[in-house]
Nucleic acid binder design. Structure first.
Length: 379
RNA sequence: GGACAGGUGCCCGAGCGGUUAAAGGGGACGGACUGUAAAUCCGUUGGCUUUGCCUACGUUGGUUCAAAUCCAACCCUGUCCA
C-alpha cells in the first residue's frame, strides 16, 4: 500500500543480514535508502550547483539551523519563500538542529538546561537557541526532516559527561517534539537523536527513551567524533539493536566510504558527511580504486580520467593531469570538479550498496570493496 | 663617464660583529580532513659517517678570538645625471 503523498513514511523493501533497502516518502520526493545526503550547511552544497547535486543522484540534502539563523536569518528565508525556493532545490531537505555546533563551536557557546547560547562566529553577537527555537527555525526554513536539538560531545569523554549530555538530549527531545507537534507541517518529520558516547548501556537507555516517544525516525549522533572506526562500529551495532525496524535510522555526520559500508551492515539507512565536498575542495578524490590526492606530483602528466566508467562528467571527462594543474594553481574549477566527482561517487556507492542488498549479497560486497576503498589508490 | 642604491638558501625577502644552516613569504614535496568558523590546516625543504661535522649569504683578499654582518679591490644589477 502506497502511503498518501502528504505523509512522511518509511517502507522496507529488502534486507541482507542487518542491512536494509527501503524508501522514505516525503511530499517533496522519495528518498531511496540507504541514502547519502550531501551537506549544504549555508544553503549551498559548496562549489556545486543544485542541478549537479541532483544529477549526481542525491535525493535529499542537508541545511544547518545555526548557520542559516545567523546569515541570512531564518525569518528572512521564510519571507523569501523558504529554503527550497531560496536555494533552488526542490527535493527534500534535512536540517541539523545546531547540536553539532555545540561541539564544533564549543569555545563560542554556553550550555544551560534552557538551551545553548552561541556567540556568533561572524560578528560576536549573542543568539539563544532553545529546543523550541531550533524547531521554529527549521520550520521557518521549511525543512522536510528536522532534527531535535541535542548535545553532541567530543570523544573520548568520561561516563559522567556522556550521561549528562545524553540525559539533557533526551529532555530536549521531549521539548523539541512538543514544539514540532505545534509548528510542524503535514508531511514534515522530526527525528530524535541517540547519544551516550561509546557506552552501550547509555546508548540503550537513550534509544529506548526515544523509541518510547514514538518518533518517525531515529538518528545516532555523537559518533565519528574521536573514538575511531572500530569503536564507532561496535557502538553502532549496540545501538541499532534497540531501534525499531519500521523506522528510518540516520547515522549523523558519517563518513568515509568504509564507515558507511560498515554502518549499513549494522542497519543504518541515512548518512550525511562533509567529506566528499570538503575533501574535494582540498584535492582528494574518492574512486572505486581508492583515494587519490590530485595534488601529488605523480598525476602531473597522467592523461587518464579519475574513472572512465563514471556517469559523472567531472570523473569521466577531465584528465588527472588537468585536475592536478587546477589544484596546484588554486583554481576554483579544481575544487568544483572534485566536489562534483566525489558527490557522484558517494551516490554511486550508495546505489551499489542498495543493489547488493537487494540481491542479498551485501556481506560479499563489503569483502570485495573494503580494502580498496579504505586506502589510497595503488598507482 | 659620474652619483646613489643594491647583489642572502629553488624564488622574493629580513638580518647588518658572536644566541644564524640564516626570520617571513612564495614555490616544491608530503600528510590531514567524518551532523562544514575549513577553496582550510599541519609537516618537510644544503650535504653527510647526524648528541657532531662539512659547505653556504656576488668574487677575491683583509681586519677580528669570531664576519652574511666591518674594510679594500674587482665583477654584476637597477635608478638618476651628463
Amino acid at each position: 500500500m502506497t502511503p498518501p503523498k502528504s505523509k512522511f513514511a518509511f517502507s522496507l523493501h529488502s534486507t541482507s543480514g542487518a542491512a536494509r533497502v527501503g524508501e522514505i516518502t516525503t511530499p517533496r520526493g522519495i528518498i531511496s535508502t540507504p541514502a547519502f545526503m550531501p551537506v549544504g550547511t549555508a544553503g549551498t552544497v559548496k562549489a556545486l550547483y543544485p542541478d549537479q547535486v541532483k544529477s549526481a543522484g542525491a535525493d535529499i540534502l542537508l541545511g544547518n539551523t545555526y548557520h542559516l539563523m545567523l546569515r541570512p536569518g531564518a525569518e528572512r528565508i521564510a519571507r523569501l519563500g523558504g529554503l527550497h525556493t531560496f536555494m533552488r532545490w526542490d527535493g527534500p531537505i534535512l536540517t541539523d538542529s545546531g547540536g553539532f555546533q555545540v561541539m564544533s563551536l564549543s569555545s563560542l557557546r554556553k550550555m544551560s538546561e534552557k538551551g545553548v547560547t552561541f556567540q556568533s562566529h561572524i560578528d560576536g553577537s549573542t543568539h539563544h537557541v532553545s529546543p523550541e527555537r531550533s524547531i521554529e527555525i527549521q520550520c521557518l526554513l521549511g525543512a522536510d526532516i528536522q532534527m531535535q536539538l541535542d548535545e553532541c560531545i567530543e570523544l573520548p569523554a568520561s561516563r559522567e559527561r556522556a550521561i549528562e549530555a545524553m540525559e539533557l538530549s533526551l529532555r530536549w527531545a521531549e521539548r523539541s517534539k512538543r514544539a514540532f507537534d505545534d509548528m510542524g507541517k503535514p508531511g514534515q518529520a522530526m527525528l530524535g537523536i541517540v547519544q551516550g558516547g561509546t557506552d552501550l548501556e547509555l546508548r540503550r537507555r537513550s534509544a529506548e527513551a526515544l523509541v518510547a516517544m514514538d518518533l518517525p525516525g531515529y538518528a545516532v549522533g555523537g559518533l565519528a567524533v574521536g573514538e575511531g572506526h572500530d569503536l564507532m562500529v561496535a557502538t553502532l551495532a549496540g545501538t541499532t539493536l534497540f531501534l525499531p525496524a519500521d523506522k528510518p535510522r540516520y547515522l549523523m555526520g558519517v563518513g568515509t566510504p568504509v564507515d558507511i559500508m560498515e554502518a549499513v551492515a549494522r542497519g543504518i539507512d541515512m548518512f550525511d558527511c562533509v567529506m566528499p565536498t570538503r575533501s574535494g575542495r582540498h584535492g582528494q578524490a574518492f574512486t572505486w580504486g581508492g583515494k587519490i590526492n590530485l595534488k601529488n606530483a605523480r598525476h602531473a602528466e597522467d592523461p587518464r580520467p579519475l574513472d572512465a566508467n563514471s556517469s559523472c562528467p567531472a570523473a569521466r571527462d577531465y584528465s588527472r593531469a588537468y585536475l592536478h594543474h587546477l589544484m596546484k594553481s588554486g583554481e576554483h574549477l579544481g575544487s568544483m570538479l572534485l566536489s562534483w566527482a566525489n558527490v557522484a561517487f558517494y551516490q554511486d556507492l550508495m546505489a551499489a550498496i542498495r543493489k547488493a542488498i537487494t540481491e542479498d549479497r551485501y556481506a560479499a560486497f563489503i569483502v570485495a570493496h573494503r580494502a580498496r576503498l579504505s586506502g589510497a589508490e595503488v598507482p
